[in-house]
Structure formats: C-alpha cells, structure tokens
Amino acid sequence: MNVIRALTQNKVAMFGFAVLLLLSLIAIFGPMLYDGSPWKMVQRPFIPPFANDRFLLGTDTLGRDVLAGLIYGARISLLVGLVSTVIALLIGIPLGAYAGYFGGWVDEILMRFTEVFQTVPSFALAVVLVAIFEPSVYSITGAIAIVSWPPVARLVRGEFLALRNQEYVLAAKLNGQSHRNIILKEILPNSLSPIIVLASLMVATAILLESSLSFLGLGDPEIMSWGYMIGAAKTVIRQAWWLSFIPGVAIAVTVLALNLLGEGLNEALNPKLSGKREH
C-alpha cells in the first residue's frame, strides 16, 4: 500500500517508530531480563549515574535502582497511554458518528454534552477525578480517557457531517442499506485516516497527563512511574539533579517519538493537508 511506502520513506517518522518499538520491547521484556525491583532498596542512596557498574543510572533518595524504575515506568506509561486512548476512541467515535450522521437534535444534544467536557479544564478534571476515586492505575486510565475523548467526538462528527452527503453514501441509502451498514461500512472506513493520526497524538498527550498526575502524587502507589520519580526527587533537586532529569528525558523522548510518528502518519494518510503538495 502507498501509505506504508510513504511512511517508510519518511525518515523522521521511521525514527519515531524505531524509538517506540524499542520502548515497547523494553516495556514488555525489560522487567523479565533486568532483575531489579523498582521499589527495593539495593544500595546506598544518591549514587550518581555511571558511578556503579551494577546500577548504571545510580540510585535514588532511598537507594532504589533508577534504571529499574525507568524500565517499569516505560511499562506503565505506554500501557496507560494506549489503554486510555482506546477507551477515549470507544467513547468518542460512536458519539461523533451518531451526532454527525443523524444531525438535528441528536447532534445538538451530543455536541452540547461534548462542549461541556471540552470547556472544563481537562487536567484539573483529571486531578479531581483521580483524587475522588482514589489513585489507582484504573482511576488514572479512566480519568485520562474521560478528559481526552471530546476531540475525537468532534473530529469524527466533522468527518461524518462531511461524508454523509457524499454521493456514494446517498447511493447506499437508495440501495436500502441499514444505518448501521452505512455508518460502519461506507463512512467509517473513509474517515479512519484522521482518526489514526489523532489517536497517535492522543497517546502522547495521555503519557504527559499520566506523568503529570503521578508528579502531583496522584499516581498508583503500587506502581513505579516516571512522573512519580520526578516528583519524589523534587525536594532533592539541589543535591541530585539527575534523579529528576533522567526520567524527564525518558518522557520527552517517548512523547516526541509519538508526535513524529503522528506527523508522518498525517503526511502519509492526508497528503492534501500536509506540506507535501507545496507550490
């Protein structure tokens, strides 16, 4: 397919893809291969990076292995990012599809509903939700999903609104196809490309959100995450800046890789909208 070819020719996007692939491998197999619990105190605290052969990135304020923390953190970041995005898509796509396809008062009600969620400051809402339902990996994922679906709904609605009067959709209506068939087989496949692009960017945003929540102390107390590591090192930033520096770089690299891949996907899937057809 041309999309895949266009994507593989885009070096920047492929770089992002390679980084993500590596991160996924680390997230999946890292904990099996690198035997270190992120919570166990293994050495004296504040060993700087590269000073100790066994603990490559040193130890934190309580003598825990920083590298182990990073590996486990990759797992939770990617997991929360992916799962919350999937949930957000599961909420946003049907809502947007119904609003855009049926229009009228269905659209009016669904879009007012979406507007409320879009107006609310999303990070503040996530904080409130996680705080009230007690921090856990479930409440965090759920809260992130709840604050991220409105853009999906709006995008899908826009696509459906534009496509529902396309002549091939009208032809399907004349054929006597059911609404379900028209939505799923005629319109949805043709509006997938912008959804895919948005989804890749949403994973990035979700990872940022998750790290911000853990930084504020709203992380799952059972799980080591990058945001938590930075938050825990905040008070000792004068003595051991690397403790907050290293996990931050991990977050930035992951999010950057996702953004690069997302832009590459955008160029490959929507050649008209991206900068490819320059004058």
């Binding site: 396309q166 009208l170 399907a172 004349l174």
Partner: peptide, 23 residues
C-alpha cells in the same frame, strides 16, 4: 438514481463488484 460526481459517487474503499452487488 445516477449521481453527478463520478469521483464522489463510488466508495473509494470498495471494489467495483462490491459497489454494484451491494444493492
């Protein structure tokens, strides 16, 4: 009905056979 725009009246993700047989 036969539609106006030949570029918009056929679903780009279906084969010609599917398009005709769908009805």
């Amino acid at each position: 009905m036969v539609f106006q725009d030949p570029f918009a009246s056929l679903n780009p993700r279906k084969t010609i056979g599917q398009i005709i047989a769908d009805g």
